[in-house]
């Protein structure tokens, strides 16, 4: 951690970056995102198991862009967010600095996006047993039970859009739910509106989600949104027969391949 702090300090002092985005102690025992613009505050930086926020979410925010060049303290999930955003053309990889240490305790030194992808590939995701068991439990339900389960979960939704706001891949300036001419989906916090919102949110992330779980962790009413994304990720992998590495840099639903196994596209 000292080396991460030193590197962050050097980057700020040499004015190579104008802000370091990392984690600090929150007010309640949690870790929270912090924005450091003066190297004298660099000792606030921490990194541990409590640092779950996907900091890639801040890299597309107008408030951050106007500060200047960014160095970001990156967890594995944040790295995935960075790769996804760079692959989707949201920023140029070379325009950000990545801070952190690998599992051997060495400072991250990524010369290119490909090196980040290689690194991610060497560290496959392990979904938590809770996530997997909930997914399997929902899969084992009858269609009617599953419908009831999600209706019940969605009924708590207050349409605060914390799920959208916490997700690095929900970066549209105008989200489909905010467009009202025409009104594609209902913004009202009732059964139909909530169902439409959660289906469209999950579908827009199908094949793009990095499965960091930020959506579910941000939800104030504990809707297990990550399970929807996890299921879709499984379906995409199964149907398109592609690896996670491929998914990170490509969007399978937007690729044309003459060898596609489906006939309708030919």
């Amino acid at each position: 951690m000292d080396r991460v702090k030193q590197k962050a300090r050097d980057l700020l002092d040499s004015n190579k970056v104008q802000v370091v985005i990392g984690y600090e102690e929150g007010t309640d025992g949690t870790a929270r995102p912090v924005f450091i613009m003066d190297s004298k505050n660099i000792d606030k930086l921490i990194f541990n198991d409590r640092c779950y926020h996907n900091l890639a979410v801040y890299l597309t925010k107008v408030e951050v862009e106007k500060i200047g060049r960014v160095a970001v303290e990156a967890s594995l999930n944040t790295l995935k967010g960075i790769v996804k955003l760079a692959s989707e053309g949201q920023f140029v990889f070379e325009d950000i600095d990545i801070l952190g240490v690998n599992r051997n305790g060495e400072l991250y030194e990524f010369a290119s996006l490909d090196e980040v992808i290689d690194y991610i590939d060497q560290h496959p995701v392990e979904y938590s047993p809770e996530e997997i068991s909930l997914l399997r439990k929902i899969e084992s339900m009858t269609r009617e039970e599953r419908w009831e389960y999600w209706q019940e979960e969605f009924s708590r939704c207050i349409r605060c859009y914390a799920c959208r706001a916490a997700c690095p891949n929900c970066y549209c300036d105008a989200c489909i739910v905010d467009i009202n001419q025409p009104q594609w989906i209902s913004p009202t916090p009732d059964a139909l509106g909530n169902l439409e919102w959660h289906i469209i949110r999950a579908m827009h992330l199908a094949g793009r989600c990095v499965n960091c779980g930020a959506c579910a962790k941000a939800c104030p009413v504990d809707i297990p949104l990550n399970i929807l994304n996890l299921k879709l990720a499984e379906e995409i992998s199964k149907n398109f027969g592609i690896s996670e590495e491929f998914l990170l840099t490509n969007y399978p639903l937007a690729i044309y391949d003459p060898n596609d196994k489906e006939n309708f596209i030919k």
Partner: peptide, 9 residues
């Protein structure tokens, strides 16, 4: 407010 995600919670 820099860390604010701009949600309505």
């Amino acid at each position: 407010s820099l860390r604010c995600l701009s949600c309505g919670t």
